[in-house]
């Protein structure tokens, strides 16, 4: 599934197995400790940068978001995962200050995005789902133009350094409408970060990327969080991306957050989806289990060296995701 094979490799399973409910999954995400930050940012300062409590959004008579609550701390990378129409874009647009919410408390960098001023704007980077603007401009020209607005707030990226960072140095003097889809997307990211934002919102950032561009992009995002302490909230359909990139994953469906935690925490929450595969005398077997260590031990005791091709798959985020969504899909909305 994952490109580097690490995604669902035979990773060490915790000794007590997955059946235990040792890891607290709080529904509101608030109690979720800094554990969620995983290893992707050695940030000492764990100030809350995004604080959403009881967010609701209603269009006409239809509720698009019900009671969405979560927090993000400085340097954290958060993925907002969910099917189409789950409310991902609406949520991110409210946080960007582009949409007025119906109810609830929303704070980004200590201010309400709906009322925040230009100084706040200078600290927030935005990469929307699709930009088609400035087609006649040249890449470097646009980065210099947008960067110019940030002087006086911060020291914006130098356009030449920035094109290097996003891997567009070969296209720096190219007109924007001649860029390929992936190059255009990298330019969008460059424009989003030109003012060295403290919070970066990325809406479906890697749609249309080839695997190499995707990996480079992931490195870029991780670097921003780790080296610059940038807090990043990204939406994605791509489970693998969420798992690799985000310290914490929020699963949004039908306007509700139905899962909040690290990929591992989410996976453990859904019981019985670890799988052990092996072969015996040319026949292949597989069995789902809560306690893979015990099963492997028993298998070995029984079959000894006849046991071949042993693999332990921990539940992938995909399994978790699907099992989280299924009851909602089947149930009453």
């Amino acid at each position: 599934m994952s490109a580097d094979g690490a995604g669902n490799s035979p990773v060490a399973m915790s000794a007590d197995g997955a059946g235990s409910s040792a890891v607290a999954m709080s529904a509101d995400g608030v109690a979720n400790s800094p554990v969620a930050m995983g290893g992707d940012a050695g940030v000492a300062d764990d100030a809350v940068v995004i604080d959403v409590v009881g967010l609701r959004m209603r269009y006409g008579t239809a509720d698009v978001l019900h009671d969405v609550t979560f927090r993000a701390r400085r340097g954290e990378v958060l993925a907002l995962l969910g099917p189409n129409g789950a409310g991902k874009t609406t949520t991110i647009e409210i946080l960007e200050g582009f949409r007025t919410r119906s109810a609830g408390h929303v704070e980004v960098l200590g201010a309400d995005p709906a009322r925040a001023g230009e100084e706040w704007r200078a600290r927030v980077g935005v990469v929307l789902q699709s930009w088609r603007d400035h087609g006649k401009w040249r890449v470097r020209e646009l980065l210099a133009q947008v960067g110019a607005y940030y002087h006086g707030y911060t020291t914006p990226w130098d356009p030449d350094d920035l094109v290097d960072v996003v891997g567009l140095s070969g296209q720096a003097n190219q007109k924007i409408h001649t860029l390929s889809g992936g190059q255009r997307r990298r330019l969008d990211v460059a424009v989003g970060i030109v003012g060295r934002p403290e919070v970066l919102f990325l809406d479906e950032p890697t749609v249309g990327f080839d695997p190499v561009a995707r990996r480079d992009f992931h490195d870029l995002v991780r670097g921003l969080a780790a080296e610059h302490g940038t807090t990043i909230l990204l939406t994605t359909h791509d489970l693998d991306e969420a798992e690799r990139l985000a310290g914490r994953v929020l699963v949004l469906d039908g306007g509700r957050i139905i899962g909040d935690g690290t990929a591992e925490e989410l996976a453990r929450r859904v019981a019985g989806q670890n799988e052990v595969r092996w072969s015996l005398n040319g026949d292949r077997f597989s069995r789902p289990t809560d306690r893979p260590a015990r099963l492997v031990y028993e298998l070995y005791r029984e079959h000894g060296d006849d046991l071949r091709d042993l693999e332990v798959h921990r539940a992938s985020l995909e399994d978790t995701y699907l099992s989280l969504l299924r009851p909602v899909d089947g149930g009453v909305r």
Binding site: F98, E118, R121, R132, V146, A148, Y149, G195
Partner: peptide
């Protein structure tokens, strides 16, 4: 045209961008 292609939104996402 600038609203249609997002130029204006880009300005809005930039500090004092609409003024510029």
């Amino acid at each position: 045209a600038d609203r249609e292609d997002g130029t204006l939104l880009r300005a809005k996402a930039t500090p004092n961008g609409l003024l510029g």
